[in-house]
């Protein structure tokens, strides 16, 4: 079966602690619950969670939605975004099935990266590694003080901004990510067409600004 790999790359640095990290956790929970109600996403989308603080970790490896269990995430430390970019690239290289005589290829992986900070490590190194892999839609979300122009180097035009890391906007972001995964699952299943840019995703809700 052709899978749609989805990588959620989440900033869990100290500045996210408290309400924001709880909202992120709720957001992931909500995202998984909602996608489980969508028969196409349920079968097609595979979800991985990568977090980064003082280091980057693959908290949940690529997992089908029926088996997915929301991890416990804590916010602490600094912002190793470069390492996270390298890690997600390594994971995709390892996970994503390419077409062969015996296997059909996966769909190109989607990446949703969320951060509220400025990288504290070698960002360029991670970015270079990230660009070596072939991605479907890559969306970066800048929360509060995050550097949107830096994120544009990762996601091109697909950079969105949340004004505050309060519950309403974070929840809106995760709802939108959910809708985007649903749309993409539908697109690949019914038309075989992969979603590549922001314009092919559902319009972001008012809480989210698109950085142009």
């Amino acid at each position: 079966m052709r899978r749609l790999p989805v990588y959620l790359v989440l900033d869990t640095s100290g500045s996210m602690s408290g309400e924001p990290i709880q909202q992120v956790k709720n957001g992931v929970q909500m995202l998984v619950s909602a996608l489980r109600q969508d028969p196409q996403a349920l079968e097609t989308a595979y979800l991985s969670i990568i977090t980064f603080d003082s280091s980057a970790r693959e908290v949940v490896p690529l997992t089908d939605l029926p088996s997915f269990q929301t991890p416990d995430i804590q916010a602490t430390g600094i912002t190793s975004m470069g390492e996270a970019l390298s890690l997600v690239a390594d994971c995709a290289k390892r996970d994503v099935v390419k077409a062969s005589a015996t296997k059909k290829a996966d769909w190109r992986p989607m990446v949703f990266l969320m951060t509220d900070g400025i990288p504290t490590d070698d960002f360029q190194k991670g970015l270079t590694r990230f660009k070596e892999e072939r991605w479907g839609a890559v969306v970066a979300c800048a929360v509060d003080s995050a550097d949107a122009s830096l994120l544009q180097q990762i996601a091109g035009e697909a950079v969105v901004k949340l004004d505050t890391s309060d519950s309403a906007s974070l929840s809106a972001f995760f709802k939108w990510v959910t809708a985007s995964i649903s749309t993409s699952s539908k697109s690949v299943q019914t038309t075989g067409k992969e979603v590549e840019g922001l314009d092919q995703l559902p319009p972001p809700p008012p809480e989210i600004q698109v950085v142009v």
Partner: peptide
């Protein structure tokens, strides 16, 4: 028919 990635027809 098959491309490197799925969905190319």
């Amino acid at each position: 028919e098959g491309g490197d990635y799925a969905g190319q027809t």
